[in-house]
Design a protein around this nucleic acid. Structure first.
Lengths: 166, 166
DNA sequence: TCTATTTAGGATATTAGTATCTTTAAATCT
DNA sequence: AGATTTAAAGATACTAATATCCTAAATAGA
């Protein structure tokens, strides 16, 4: 609920792509299958990520999506801003149109530090870091682990690529 | 965005009612006017708060809504749970259906403490505390301060009631 | 050049959240 | 009893988020 479903899909997908070998475009269809999210919807989201400069896309056979050069350094805040616009950190907890240090809602003072922590966390988590965590096998980005997604048994995560990227 | 608009309206309204003298029922219409929120919608929300045991309601002339006995101790988490159901603290940031210490998304470990802080804050903020803060004049629960809402000049906040409640 | 594959883009459908309206029931006052 | 005031309840409308579908454009390979 803090992140929209669309943001969640976007983040999951980008982490997934970041765990895949560079130079081998990822198909929207494959990503959707791996993550268990609606394929047509994910395709739309990936379009946005391309237009937003995080992904590169290629059409036709052997096409698909790859991380744009340098995009491993993208942090989660940037992704959320691209998908949802600002607002996560910009708006008042209680919904006031104006709520600043000068004139505030009664939650303002205590909410501020929490908001800052959220911001900091989202900013320090990059695709690179998260992809390494997932590739280690200790964490997952989908409810089903890779082995149980049909047709994924061959596709083993390329940890080498990840390590060389950090 | 962390709280739904409905939750925000509910909280604003409850704080407003908590700043009003006990025993003088607050009209849905008046609360909506004071807070600048849609009257018909707010009426529905107040119905939920009544059914949820936070407000008492009375029909007919001199009717309206009052805080149920003891409801000044209600905290924001209880209100949000009533309006939105759990989920705020119950769900994974990245949207995984299962994400626990045992099997987690890559954000889990770092998100956990922030979630706890949010939970703690919402739990320690009671209507009573927030009403006192608002009654002090240092904080507001609506974009327009009370003096500028038409027909509100007579209705002065009853700070005595608040103090005796704490 | 033809066909197959894949993303791009636009149109449409579905669902949940937000909001309004109308009717009914309860209470008060005359 | 009748009129007025207020919340309760149900129906309906609007909007944004989520999701699907279809056609077009690009690319690769035969």
């Amino acid at each position: 609920m803090i992140l929209s479903r669309t943001s969640q899909y976007a983040i999951q997908t980008l982490i997934y792509i970041a765990t895949q070998p560079r130079g081998e475009p990822v198909l929207a269809r494959k990503a959707a299958e791996r993550l268990g999210v609606p394929p047509a919807y994910l395709a739309k989201i990936m379009q946005v990520l391309s237009r937003g400069g995080i992904l590169d896309s290629f059409r036709g056979p052997s096409g698909g999506f790859v991380l744009k050069a340098g995009a491993e350094k993208t942090n989660l805040m940037e992704i959320v801003n691209l998908i949802e616009g600002p607002g996560l950190v910009g708006t008042c907890v209680l919904g006031l149109k104006v709520c600043s240090d000068a004139t505030a809602c009664p939650m303002h003072a205590k909410w501020q530090p929490i908001k800052m922590n959220v911001l900091k966390l989202l900013q320090e988590q990059t695709l690179e870091k998260l992809a390494v965590a997932v590739a280690s096998g200790l964490y997952r980005i989908a409810d089903l682990p890779a082995q149980f997604v049909s047709g994924e048994s061959e596709n083993v995560v390329n940890v080498v690529t990840l390590n060389s990227a950090s």
